[in-house]
Design a protein around this nucleic acid. Structure first.
Lengths: 203, 203
DNA sequence: CGACCTCTGGCAGTCGCTGCCAGGTTGGCG
DNA sequence: CGCCAACCTGGCAGCGACTGCCAGAGGTCG
């Protein structure tokens, strides 16, 4: 928060600090992902990642606040993209269409890469990871609340509850879709699955 | 699994072992709940609970496998009740009505007590607890899959995904309902809120 | 009563994570 | 160039949840 006042807007990262930082961060992340997929999340210790990445545990925790962040660190970005895409929709767009657009925007961030499948597989197969993931997403849902609420008719009393239910339902369908997507080894199209799930729910 | 072959069906629990067990378990649970509500979940250590309950940490972990289980231990029972209520519904009952009945059955287990509100409040306000709670519930959802799938028309291809979406949506509405129920200090009726949320989702 | 089984407590150790403190590197300045 | 300040790193000690192990106290039953 001190150096930012300068001209650090350029991505070239003038200072050496930033360059080494990014390099170390990348090295840690790649090592972690490799070990996770090789031997599983729970079976991989922070000590091992740090050792093989050539940094101390202390430094690793400085870059990534927790073990979960090594896999779910991008979640914040996804949240921002989602919120952005939703709020960019014209005001007359309905809730469901807006959510559809938002989810499509998020998925377009990483659909082709094989790496996404690996991460998803890890996520769906590791209980301890799912827990943290769901928790973070719940916070995201809360942030989305005002955005969604604005697009719903404020008819009944519990507008909060209804908006929450709508958001959670959208994510529920996305979950179901991504789960079968993983089960199919990434063959099918997530967005189509999402639409199908939503159709099944909304009759 | 050894002593059960005898006549332990009686709730009087013949042996002294069982009586002391139950007593200790109860003591631990009450202490934990008291401390949690007094000073918060994260601020309460296992050591403190064990000390004030008059047992060793080792014994505490033998009764409750984890810290979370001190609050969410009943979840398995809820799951069983839910599954039971759903499968007891007549075959021609639709999915949504069956789920409605199941949720009603679960809620009727503890709606009057003030203790339920305390637990819910703790759950909704403690991130680390929510994570574990959601994870366990996800497993419950998976168990409910065949029950729900049987009540859906097996039309399209991804029957799995659609059933999952329906279950998750029901829970999403229950979440939204219980959240506003907590926010209202237990004034409103959860089941009514659930219906309203579901209506908002299903249009 | 004595053999047997169960339950208990304590100890050591793992793993994720944090605070603190001594370094070494880098950047900016005179 | 020299020097100070800012920054980053590694290591250590420590906490809290959790587990395996082992000795011992207590109930149970022939």
């Amino acid at each position: 928060m001190k150096r930012e006042e300068a001209k650090t807007t350029t991505r070239a990262s003038a200072t050496l600090w930033d360059r080494t930082r990014q390099l170390a961060s990348q090295e840690i992340l790649e090592t972690a992902l490799r070990l996770f997929t090789e031997q599983g999340y729970d079976e991989t210790t922070i000590a091992q990642i740090a050792r093989e990445a050539g940094v101390s545990q202390r430094t690793l925790f400085r870059y990534f606040g927790s073990k979960e962040d090594l896999l779910g660190g991008d979640q914040d970005r996804f949240g921002r993209v989602l919120a952005g895409a939703i709020s960019e929709q014209p005001a007359e767009t309905g809730v469901w269409d807006a959510l559809h657009a938002g989810i499509a925007a998020v998925l377009s961030l990483h659909d082709n890469s094989e790496q996404a499948l690996q991460r998803f597989r890890l996520l769906h197969n590791t209980a301890s990871l799912r827990a943290g993931w769901l928790e973070k997403r719940l916070r995201l849902q809360e942030e989305l609340l005002p955005l969604v609420e604005a697009r719903m008719d404020a008819a009944a009393g519990a507008a909060d509850a209804r908006a929450r239910a709508v958001i959670a339902t959208a994510f529920a369908c996305l979950d179901a879709a991504s789960m079968t997507w993983v089960a199919n080894d990434g063959q099918s199209n997530i967005m189509d699955l999402y639409d199908e799930c939503l159709a099944a729910v909304r009759g």
